[in-house]
Design a binder for these strands. Structure first.
Length: 953
RNA sequence: GCUGAAGUGGUGGAAUUGGUAGACACGUUGGACUUAAAAUCCAAUGGCCAUUAUGGCCGUGCGGGUUCAAGUCCCGCCUUCAGUACCA
């Protein structure tokens, strides 16, 4: 009987679906294990061979855990809101829901043919109303919460209102907007409802605020920082500009410290944790307040500055080096700093305004590309040093970023290279406050070697002591305190798109109101077109029925808006990461329409034990979802505040592009070996036209694209050879390999094995279809172990020693490999095992049964088929992983006594199959080596036939 | 610049705590089977030298070091990839 992989794979996929083999129960006597993949965005292009890599790895692990006796949850779903479907809708008028549905069908078919053990009964789609109902619900919970920095958790906004009513906001230690003004209880109680709501917005965990955002004109939407790469949009590569807009934001910055601390408790790769740490960007230092004394200077002589009356303006700066405060010789404000216009003197006004305008025009990208040019301008204003009361000139410069810290710095040119360069360039004095350090060439920034000098009360102190003392003294005069600053910004949550979750929000007198949870989901309305409206409103502005009737508690026509009972609804939708921030918990109880998930379900599954996905989500999904989880934890909805115990980032499978060389200005193509003789340009051709020797079939190339129809080809040795380039697998490089064809030609088991065999899971590696014959051949040889020309040949004979040795060393290796996620080496181990058992002519049932279980996570279809042939009536998925027994391995060596000087000293452990001659040689070799030991007694001697390899001890 | 990861045959990649470097596979070459092809099977395959069998030398990016023993540990470089980028 032949190994007919197409038929048997179909058979078992149908069997698994029909019998719901992989359906997970929310209760079990077995221990639980939750294996999760990052769910895919169902794009129109379908899957290529790179996509399933992580899914295959997680599937192997999930299947392995089932063999090990765990109740495994291994779900899958779709992140089905997103920009491509919307852009397709704009072009074609097709409703995104329709294209998304079609794409999902393709994805499902492609996933099914690979034989994953997903529990499809738990499928979720972020664009389904019964799913995004709960995304909206979490949004409301965030709106109803504020972050208490004293208790370090989110609390209900009503508790904050109670505090305000009793004692105002003076003693509240909350994460809130900096510009919030202080008020007393009496003031609060006297505020109108609208005023109160305005103030509460500054405390809520999701809030509406005018923020400077990254606006992408080409996409007509706002982008989060992580959606911008090198100053252009991640999707499409369009330019991005800064723009002020009223937007919903998420107060993720409140969780900065906990997001940082939480990394210590989870088993994620160091690389990924590092990316998140950098992104959060914690720095410890102090905030210092400088009083501006500009007006006084403008009208009087500079000698009077020390006694001049202090202006009402102050400038707060953040510094990580308070110890260098006596080295301050100027201050620099970001051009966008709000005080710039107020403190600039008449004399400097024109120059400053010109500079501010010039900077505003430069795009982020220009500013980034141009780091070396030093530019700035003097404001004419002075601030006063908090301790020496000396005047300090205030400059503006674009090396100071408005978006970090306070947008202002105290410049210490002797201790910071940027300040140093700025001072040199504008001829500002550079006082030296370091003992025994030469600063004539560059600044001295080595904290650890710092000894402070010329600095009043901190002279002779090191960095640590001086810092502590300066902060203390600043506190004494009320001009500063210790402060920790984070780079992490609040996340903008509004998108001017159609195909996303609607906000459960309507506006009453311009103030946002939540639609009660009882009326969720607020479903996405139909629109005639998916572009922004003529008045520049988001696409939802095109909806005819999109107003909230507070009497009916329902969506009604926006013609009826009367601002008394019928109100406009938010026109923005939520960003892509909204739906993906809660899906992992929803899988635990996905059909629950009463709660986001039941407490029984969440308490049973707790958290994801193993999460596999790409590291490109490090500063996006993987950060935002941790934030939501912590919030949910504060609300008592989830039992743990980190949702993924272990995370593995699978590497990308790259394409191997084929490059034909066209002679410039002609329609002649030259074979790769001859390209240096001409001036050529590189044209990428479809990799499917190229064979394993890089030779192109010219006839199919001519039929592939019209430009090749009449082309001439200059051959070498009668062949046309292309060059190769490894790059990202993408349609535009014509290097996409489709898994459908691989499954058709070699089978899903071959695909699964080969993807693992390609190399370590985490690594980036090129796809090369030619190599798949190796694993495919292995599967055929495996088949032959059970079948020969006469049919099934397994017998009940007792396994011999060699059989057992082969089996047990395979068990040991495969178990270790899976636990360490080195799936590539177990494929090799299988090959060796099958070769050995073939050579041993092993037909023993017990050996072959155990072998099948070992292989089944990797190649489940062939394993099921042979398992059935062995007489089992249930799926191999329920079989127990074979037990490893050491005894089958150790009997391979024997101890030989070694003696010299007539005395027996110790033994040599030698392989059993060593010949007498080799033993003699070995002992002789040992005697020789012994001389090098100079009398020491070795603990262990490592030998190979005829040789002492090494002596340990 | 900073942070992280990695450099091993023609290629993808193996090598427990330092212990036979190159497993396994692709590719290549030769052979068997076949009218032929495909498929399958067998053999060889790091480099150099020697060759009648045995062998010898060199080899894990570069230069040093520790050790009986280094791909692995230590010091100093080089290169590549990824993340980040005037973060005060």
């Amino acid at each position: 009987m032949k190994y007919n992989f197409n038929a048997l794979e179909k058979k078992w996929q149908d069997y698994w679906a029909k019998n719901e083999t992989f359906k997970a129960s929310n209760e079990s006597d077995k221990p639980k294990y939750y294996v999760l993949d990052m769910f895919p965005y169902p794009s129109g292009a379908g899957l290529h061979v790179g996509h399933p890599l992580g899914y295959i790895a997680s599937d192997i692990y999930a299947r392995y855990k089932r063999h090990k006796g765990f109740n495994v949850l291994h779900p899958q779903g779709y992140d089905s809101f997103g920009l491509p479907a919307e852009q397709y809708a704009i072009q074609t008028g097709q409703h995104p829901a329709v294209t998304t549905e079609a794409n999902i069908k393709t994805y499902r078919r492609q996933l099914d043919q690979i034989g994953f053990s997903f529990d499809w009964s738990r499928e979720v789609r972020t664009s389904n109303p019964d799913y995004y109902k709960w995304t909206q619900w979490i949004f409301i919970q965030l709106f109803e919460s504020w972050y208490n920095n004293d208790t370090h958790k989110a609390e209900h906004i009503d508790a904050l209102v109670k505090v305000f009513e009793a004692e105002g906001n003076q003693n509240v230690n909350a994460a809130f907007d900096d510009d919030t003004e202080a008020f007393t209880a009496d003031e609060w109680n006297a505020y109108s409802e609208a005023e109160k709501q305005h103030i509460l917005l500054k405390y809520r965990l999701t809030y509406l605020a005018e923020t400077e955002v990254n606006w992408c004109p080409a996409l007509g939407t706002v982008l989060a920082n992580d959606e911008i790469v090198n100053g252009v949009s991640e999707r499409g590569g369009h330019p991005v500009i800064r723009k002020k807009m009223t937007q919903w934001s998420m107060r993720i910055s409140a969780y900065a410290e906990r997001l940082l601390q939480g990394l210590e408790t989870i088993d994620w790769t160091d690389a990924l944790k590092d990316i998140q740490r950098n992104w959060i960007g914690k720095s410890v230092g102090a905030s210092v307040t400088f009083n501006v004394v500009s007006e006084a200077l403008e009208d009087t002589n500079s000698e009077d500055t020390s006694s001049a009356s202090v202006s009402k303006h102050t400038i707060d700066v953040f510094t990580t080096r308070p110890d260098t405060i006596f080295g301050v010789s100027f201050m620099t404000l970001a051009p966008e700093h709000e005080l710039v216009s107020q403190i600039t003197t008449e004399a400097q006004k024109a120059e400053v305004e010109a500079y501010v305008e010039a900077t505003a025009k430069r795009s982020e990208r220009d500013r980034m590309a141009d780091v070396k040019t030093i530019s700035g301008v003097y404001t004419g204003a002075y601030a006063e040093h908090p301790f020496t009361k000396e005047p300090i000139p205030i400059w503006i410069g674009d090396y100071v970023l408005a978006s970090y810290g306070t947008g202002a710095v105290m410049a210490v040119p002797c201790g910071d290279q940027r300040d140093y360069d700025f001072a040199k360039h504008f001829d500002i004095p550079i006082p030296n406050i370091f003992e025994g350090v030469d600063i004539s060439e560059e600044a001295f920034a080595d904290k650890d070697k710092t000894i402070i000098a010329n600095s009043d009360f901190i002279n002779g102190m090191n960095y640590k002591k001086a810092t502590k003392r300066v902060i203390y003294e600043l506190e004494q005069i009320g001009q500063g305190q210790g402060k920790t600053n984070y780079r992490l910004r609040d996340a903008v949550f509004s998108r001017q798109r159609y195909w996303g979750e609607p906000f459960p929000v309507y506006y009453k007198n311009g103030l946002p109101q939540m639609i009660s949870e009882n009326y969720l989901p607020l479903t996405l309305p139909e629109v005639e077109k998916y572009l922004p409206t003529e008045t520049g409103e988001p696409p939802l502005g095109n909806a005819k029925v999109w107003a909230w009737d507070t009497n009916q508690c329902a969506v009604v026509s926006n013609q009826l808006i009367d601002n008394e009972t019928v109100f406009p609804i938010e026109l923005n939708t939520m960003p892509g990461w909204a739906g993906s921030s809660q899906y992992f918990n929803r899988y635990m109880d996905p059909r629950n329409d009463k709660e986001i998930f039941s407490q029984e379900a969440i308490n049973y599954w707790q958290q994801v034990d193993l999460y596999i996905g790409g590291s490109e989500h490090a500063t996006g999904h993987l950060l935002y979802s941790r934030f939501w989880q912590k919030f949910m934890f504060d609300k008592g909805l989830v039992p743990v505040d980190e949702y993924a115990k272990k995370l593995i980032n699978q590497g990308m499978i790259l394409g191997t592009s084929a490059i034909a060389h066209r002679i410039s200005g002609t329609n002649q193509y030259v074979s790769n070996g001859l390209k240096n003789d001409y001036s050529v340009e590189e044209i990428r051709v479809d990799v499917n036209l190229v064979n394993s020797s890089d030779e192109v079939d010219i006839e199919s190339l001519k039929n592939w694209q019209p430009q090749f129809k009449d082309a001439e080809f200059i051959l070498e040795d009668g062949k046309f050879i292309v060059g190769r380039e490894v790059e990202k697998m993408s349609k535009r490089w014509y290097n996409v390999v489709n898994p459908d064809e691989i499954c058709e030609q070699y089978g899903a088991d071959s695909l699964r094995l080969y993807e693992m065999f390609l190399g370590p899971l985490e690594q980036y590696k090129p796809w090369n279809t030619a190599g798949i014959t190796g694993v495919h051949g292995f599967l055929k040889r495996l088949w032959k172990l059970y079948y020969d020309d006469n049919g099934f040949k397994v017998t009940d004979t007792e396994p011999n020693k060699d059989n057992l040795k082969t089996l047990h060393k395979t068990i040991k290796k495969v178990e270790e490999d899976i636990e360490n996620f080195s799936f590539n080496t177990s494929v090799s181990t299988f090959m060796i095992a099958v070769n050995e058992l073939t050579a041993q002519k092993c037909t023993s049932r017990s050996i072959l049964e155990s072998l099948l279980i070992l292989i089944s996570p990797y190649a489940p279809h062939i394993a099921e088929e042979l398992w059935e042939q062995l007489g089992h009536s249930t799926s191999i998925a329920t079989a127990s992983f074979p037990m490893f027994e050491e005894k089958h391995l150790v009997e391979s060596s024997k101890n030989y006594p070694i003696s010299f000087n007539g005395k027996m000293r110790f033994t040599l452990e030698l392989p059993l199959d060593m010949s007498k001659e080799d033993i003699e040689k070995t002992v002789l070799a040992y005697e020789k080596t012994r001389e090098q030991l100079q009398g020491r007694t070795p603990k262990k001697v490592i030998v190979v036939p005829g040789k002492i390899v090494n002596i340990v001890g």
